[in-house]
Amino acid sequence: MSRHAHELDIDGLPATPFIINRFDEERMLIATPVLETPRSLIDIHVGERVAVGAVLFDIVRDHCLSVGIHPGVVMRCERCTSRSVMLQRDDGMRIELDRVYAAFVEVQPLH
């Protein structure tokens, strides 16, 4: 019987597939993601537009949700400093996010 990689066991437990770049299906992105390896929010450059993908860890996810960052949101980087990333969502909302949180937010560049 052949097995796929997502069906392999570790210590007798079935492994569940992990999808890192799944976007919220209720939201439609206006822009089209570029087919690149997902990056962290701290890796983006000033002026770059990105779509938010997965937000790792509950504490980071909760903080991001409280400031308006969630999967599917399209944002543009306005400024990067050693302490934070200043972002503007497509709806005009501005968000300053500490780089500690930004490190755990996956983004994909947009055209």
Rank of each mutant, 00 (worst) to 15 (best):
M1W: 07
S2L: 12
H4Y: 12
H4N: 09
H4C: 05
A5M: 09
A5Y: 10
A5D: 10
H6I: 12
E7Y: 04
E7F: 03
E7V: 02
L8V: 14
I10A: 09
I10N: 10
D11R: 10
G12E: 07
G12M: 07
G12D: 04
L13V: 13
L13N: 08
P14F: 11
P14V: 08
P14D: 12
P14M: 08
A15I: 06
A15Y: 04
P17G: 08
P17E: 13
I19H: 08
I19F: 14
I20P: 05
I20Q: 11
R22F: 06
R22W: 07
D24L: 02
E25I: 09
E25D: 09
E26R: 09
M28N: 06
L29N: 06
L29F: 05
L29S: 12
I30Q: 09
A31P: 02
A31D: 12
T32E: 15
T32A: 07
T32V: 13
P33S: 11
L35R: 13
L35T: 09
E36F: 06
E36K: 14
E36N: 14
R39D: 13
R39E: 15
S40N: 06
S40R: 10
S40M: 07
I42C: 14
I42M: 12
I44N: 04
I44R: 06
H45M: 14
E48W: 09
E48F: 06
E48A: 12
R49M: 15
V50H: 00
V50F: 14
A51V: 15
V52W: 03
G53N: 11
G53K: 02
G53H: 05
V55C: 10
V55F: 03
F57D: 12
D58C: 04
D58S: 15
V60A: 12
R61S: 11
R61V: 01
R61Y: 11
R61E: 09
R61Q: 11
R61T: 04
D62F: 07
D62I: 10
C64P: 02
C64N: 06
L65W: 08
S66P: 03
S66G: 09
G68N: 02
I69V: 15
I69P: 00
I69F: 04
H70C: 10
P71F: 00
G72R: 00
G72T: 01
G72N: 03
G72K: 00
V73I: 14
V73S: 05
V73Q: 05
R76D: 05
R76S: 14
C77R: 07
E78G: 10
E78F: 03
E78N: 14
E78W: 04
C80V: 14
C80Y: 00
C80L: 13
C80S: 08
R83L: 14
S84Q: 06
M86D: 15
L87M: 08
Q88S: 09
R89M: 02
D91L: 05
D91F: 05
D91N: 13
G92M: 03
G92W: 01
M93W: 05
R94E: 15
I95E: 01
I95H: 00
I95Y: 00
E96L: 06
L97A: 03
L97Q: 00
D98I: 04
V100Y: 10
V100D: 10
Y101I: 06
A102R: 01
A102N: 02
A103H: 10
A103W: 03
V105C: 05
V105H: 03
E106C: 11
V107R: 00
V107S: 01
Q108G: 14
Q108P: 02
L110P: 01
L110K: 02
L110A: 03
L110Q: 07
L110H: 03
